[in-house]
Amino acid sequence: MNLTTILLQFFALILAPVLAPLLTGWINQCRAWLQNRSAPPLLQPYYQLGKLFEKEVVLAHNASGVFRAAPYFIFAAMVLAATIIPTLSTDLPFGPAADAIALVGIFALARVFIALAGMDVGTSFGTLGARREMLVGFLAEPALLMSIFTASLISHSTSLSTIVDTLGHREFVIYPSLAFAGVAFTMVSLAENARIPVDNPTTHLELTMIHEAMILEYSGRHLALIEWAAALKMYAYSCLGLALFFPWGVPQDVTLSNLSLALAGLLFKLAIGGALLALIETLSAKMRIFRAPEFLGTAFMLAVLGMLVHLLLETGK
């Protein structure tokens, strides 16, 4: 641990919140193009955040401390999650603090807080959203864990840095198990980030909404933090997907040229990933809420299958 790595870690800590709304803006833009609409500006999410921070907070009479504290905790959890995923370098001083399992735990912590906040005011929409969020979560969390486990079985480690190092610097071999895990991971990320086909971030229709229903009572700076945290979650999931399945180009040692190359690589990979996500969203339709367990159950099965395939075919026994 030296000064450069600490500076780099600090840079990653700042970079995540700064870059995350850009990714959301890019996805929205791609989606608008694909759907033949005129696109909002790329920086639109920043304008929205700024506007929300300016506005006053309107709290329900019986909102408790949980409701007011939750946005800060959710935001902090997501910043942390985005920071410990190795995106620019695998030599991170905070790397040992949390491995892949702890990362899933941090995501779960944020989910529990947002669900509690949704139930706090005691409106019908809030409780409905919280219930649905937990329904999605209890299947998505083990599926996410299992798809990460496949990658950690290959690299014999749950430390994200080691996973990226091992997977990024091996000779090019196609692992069928990683393919299964990758499909499962994509399905989980769609569900976890409130995307079509599980949720629709653009409507407030009671039949479909999950995420939006929970945060219906939020306003002003609280809402800004929650929206920012949602953007960060999208960013963190994208980075995690890149780290697990496309880990090439993340340097082990830190030099300025390496770093700028890694940053350019990250932006490029995120741009491609965001465009693909917009494509998936455009091509699929929203499912009924009770199809969601089937969708996530499939993801769970695929992830377990990935692990089994690894044990059967790739351990060489």
Binding site: A108, V112, L116, M119, D120, T127, M134, F138, E141, M146
Partner: peptide, 26 residues
């Protein structure tokens, strides 16, 4: 391992239900 992970996630569901219904809301 998958079953253990599923159980842990269900525990989250249960605990949100316990806390939110007893202490939160109206």
């Amino acid at each position: 391992a998958a079953a253990v992970a599923l159980t842990a996630a269900l525990a989250g569901y249960v605990m949100v239900k316990f806390f939110a219904i007893v202490f939160l809301g109206q």
